Deep mutational scan, measured.
Amino acid sequence: SFNTVDEWLEAIKMGQYKESFANAGFTSFDVVSQMMMEDILRVGVTLAGHQKKILNSIQVMRAQMN
């Protein structure tokens, strides 16, 4: 498990989005775990492969939080 959203993004090789997530207010796992595709688009993730990777990881995160 990760301590910060930045660490999580690095771990899934999506570190290039750290600033975008932070600027959009997605700075805690409570918020990130609620993200939908529209949120991912809003933070500027436009590549389908990256969207899928982030969404898949969020689903895993949700499962671990319950």
Score class of each variant (00 low, 15 high):
53 K>E: 13
36 M>K: 15
47 L>P: 07
50 H>N: 04
59 Q>S: 11
18 K>C: 07
3 N>G: 13
50 H>I: 02
36 M>L: 11
4 T>Y: 06
5 V>F: 03
33 S>M: 13
64 Q>R: 04
51 Q>I: 10
43 V>C: 10
12 I>L: 15
37 M>F: 13
26 F>V: 13
7 E>H: 07
55 L>D: 03
23 N>T: 12
54 I>Y: 01
65 M>R: 03
57 S>P: 00
61 M>L: 15
35 M>G: 01
3 N>V: 10
16 Q>W: 05
48 A>M: 11
12 I>T: 04
59 Q>T: 09
55 L>A: 06
19 E>H: 11
24 A>S: 10
7 E>A: 10
10 E>A: 07
5 V>C: 03
54 I>R: 00
27 T>A: 08
37 M>R: 08
22 A>Y: 13
61 M>G: 02
59 Q>M: 14
59 Q>L: 13
28 S>V: 04
62 R>M: 09
14 M>D: 01
13 K>M: 14
41 L>Q: 14
1 S>N: 15
29 F>T: 05
52 K>T: 13
20 S>W: 05
31 V>S: 14
33 S>Y: 09
38 E>F: 06
15 G>C: 05
14 M>T: 01
50 H>T: 02
16 Q>L: 06
9 L>C: 02
1 S>L: 13
50 H>W: 03
42 R>N: 13
65 M>T: 07
53 K>Y: 14
14 M>E: 01
56 N>G: 10
15 G>Y: 05
64 Q>T: 11
63 A>Q: 15
43 V>E: 00
43 V>Q: 01
66 N>K: 03
33 S>H: 08
20 S>P: 08
41 L>G: 05
23 N>V: 13
47 L>Q: 13
53 K>R: 13
29 F>I: 14
39 D>Q: 04
17 Y>C: 02
26 F>S: 03
31 V>P: 04
34 Q>S: 10
60 V>I: 14
59 Q>R: 11
17 Y>P: 01
55 L>M: 14
37 M>I: 11
47 L>N: 15
61 M>H: 04
11 A>P: 01
47 L>R: 11
35 M>A: 03
41 L>C: 08
49 G>T: 14
17 Y>Q: 01
60 V>L: 14
17 Y>F: 04
5 V>L: 04
50 H>R: 01
62 R>T: 08
11 A>M: 10
1 S>H: 13
56 N>T: 13
16 Q>D: 07
60 V>F: 13
65 M>S: 07
21 F>I: 02
63 A>W: 06
53 K>W: 15
1 S>I: 14
26 F>T: 02
4 T>F: 06
21 F>K: 00
57 S>H: 14
56 N>E: 15
36 M>I: 14
20 S>H: 14
44 G>M: 02
1 S>Q: 15
31 V>I: 14
50 H>Q: 04
48 A>R: 12
2 F>T: 07
29 F>M: 10
51 Q>Y: 05
57 S>V: 05
30 D>S: 10
13 K>W: 08
32 V>G: 00
62 R>F: 11
1 S>A: 12
44 G>D: 03
6 D>S: 13
61 M>D: 03
51 Q>F: 04
29 F>Q: 03
10 E>L: 05
15 G>E: 10
60 V>C: 12
62 R>A: 12
50 H>P: 03
61 M>N: 04
16 Q>K: 07
35 M>D: 01
33 S>E: 06
35 M>Y: 00
64 Q>C: 09
46 T>E: 08
2 F>Q: 07
12 I>C: 05
51 Q>P: 03
44 G>Q: 03
22 A>T: 09
24 A>M: 09
42 R>V: 09
61 M>Q: 04
45 V>I: 11
23 N>I: 11
45 V>A: 03
5 V>T: 04
55 L>E: 05
48 A>Q: 10
35 M>C: 04
34 Q>T: 14
12 I>R: 02
66 N>I: 15
43 V>K: 00
4 T>C: 08
39 D>W: 03
26 F>N: 03
15 G>K: 05
25 G>R: 04
34 Q>L: 11
36 M>R: 15
56 N>S: 14
1 S>R: 13
1 S>V: 13
34 Q>H: 09
40 I>D: 00
60 V>H: 15
23 N>Y: 09
38 E>L: 06
4 T>H: 07
44 G>H: 03
19 E>R: 09
49 G>I: 15
25 G>T: 02
63 A>H: 13
57 S>A: 15
60 V>E: 15
38 E>D: 11
29 F>R: 04
32 V>D: 01
29 F>V: 06
19 E>Y: 08
61 M>C: 04
24 A>Y: 11
15 G>A: 12
7 E>T: 07
8 W>N: 00
15 G>R: 05
33 S>R: 11
25 G>W: 03
65 M>A: 08
54 I>C: 02
26 F>G: 02
28 S>P: 01
28 S>F: 04
29 F>Y: 04
6 D>I: 06
37 M>Y: 12
10 E>I: 08
6 D>W: 10
18 K>Y: 05
48 A>Y: 12
9 L>Q: 00
63 A>D: 15
3 N>S: 13
27 T>P: 02
13 K>N: 15
11 A>F: 14
27 T>Y: 06
18 K>L: 05
25 G>Q: 05
16 Q>M: 10
65 M>G: 08
47 L>I: 15
3 N>Q: 14
51 Q>M: 05
6 D>Y: 08
59 Q>N: 12
6 D>N: 11
31 V>K: 14
34 Q>I: 08
20 S>F: 07
26 F>K: 05
66 N>E: 15
19 E>C: 07
48 A>W: 09
4 T>S: 12
48 A>S: 10
63 A>C: 11
6 D>M: 07
31 V>C: 08
47 L>W: 08
47 L>T: 14
